[in-house]
Nucleic acid binder design. Structure first.
Length: 238
DNA sequence: AAAATATTCAACCGCGCGATG
DNA sequence: ACATCGCGCGGTTGAATATTT
């Protein structure tokens, strides 16, 4: 039996069960043969149905009708058990596909507009603080999804960050030539790598510097507060 | 105007983790 | 203790769109 079609279980051919007729277990043969053949048919039909369902699964962009159906399903069944929800709703989509569509597009209170400058500032700050932990960053931006922030970072901000990095490394190399002491260079590096240093550098590229300065201080305080909290937690753990 | 190239972003995929049986 | 399931996360893809040549 072709494994590709019927999943992981490799089945012997139907003929194998049918041919049991001529084996030495004579008095049991008719009964056993019937049971095995029946079992075979049930199992293969089950696998066949699963394979056909998977083959019929829809992928790609969602239609309006699918969205409406998903919204209705979630309103009845709630935001959980996505596989069951996908089946119950009659959508030819996987559970994870339904979840993704709901979380990133259909969920209420989502913002669908452009990322504002304030949001952009926050993303830069939080990315510096937490790195590529998009879901965590997204929790600080109400109405925005991790996917949206991730995409925005990759398309808009990563380039700026790279430019910043290049500029800072260039300025570092210039400074290391002019200053003789190596300690001076390390001081500068630590400044560049600190969240505040990056924010300052980013703000120099940004057109709206007025707002940025006030947020910068706020961010500095917030960051220190967060870190001190982490330190407290760690020290309490021993 | 058309082809080539770059950009955007919704959606998919693989992986890991926790809950459950 | 182990297998399975459901879910969330981050990385990647690819179609649609915009821009450049």
């Amino acid at each position: 039996m072709p494994c590709k079609m019927f999943g992981a279980i490799s089945m012997p051919p139907f003929f194998f069960f049918w041919s049991i007729n001529s084996c030495s277990l004579c008095h049991l043969v008719p009964c056993i043969r019937r049971i095995l053949c029946l079992w075979y048919l049930v199992i293969t039909m089950d696998h066949y149905q699963v394979a056909m369902q998977e083959a019929e699964m829809r992928k790609g962009p969602w239609l309006e009708e699918e969205d409406e159906r998903l919204i209705a399903a979630v309103s009845i069944l709630g935001e959980r058990r996505w596989d069951s929800l996908a089946k119950a709703s009659g959508l030819r989509r996987s559970g994870r596909s339904c979840r993704l569509r709901w979380m990133n597009y259909l969920r209420p209170n989502l913002k669908h507009g452009h990322i504002t400058e304030e949001e952009e500032h926050l993303i830069v700050q939080l990315h510096k603080q937490w790195g590529n932990r998009w879901s965590r960053i997204a929790r600080s931006l109400p109405g925005r999804t991790d996917n949206e922030i991730k995409n925005y970072w990759r398309t808009h901000l990563r380039k700026k960050a790279l430019i910043l990095e290049e500029e800072s490394s260039a300025s570092n190399s210039r400074q290391s030539v002019t200053t003789t002491a190596s300690t001076a260079a390390t001081t500068n590096n630590s400044e560049q790598n600190s969240p505040l240093g990056i924010c300052e550098a980013f703000s120099s590229l940004h057109s709206n510097n007025g707002d940025w300065d006030s947020e910068k201080d706020d961010y500095n305080l917030r960051t220190c507060g967060d870190l001190s909290g982490e330190v407290e937690k760690l020290s309490s753990l021993g």
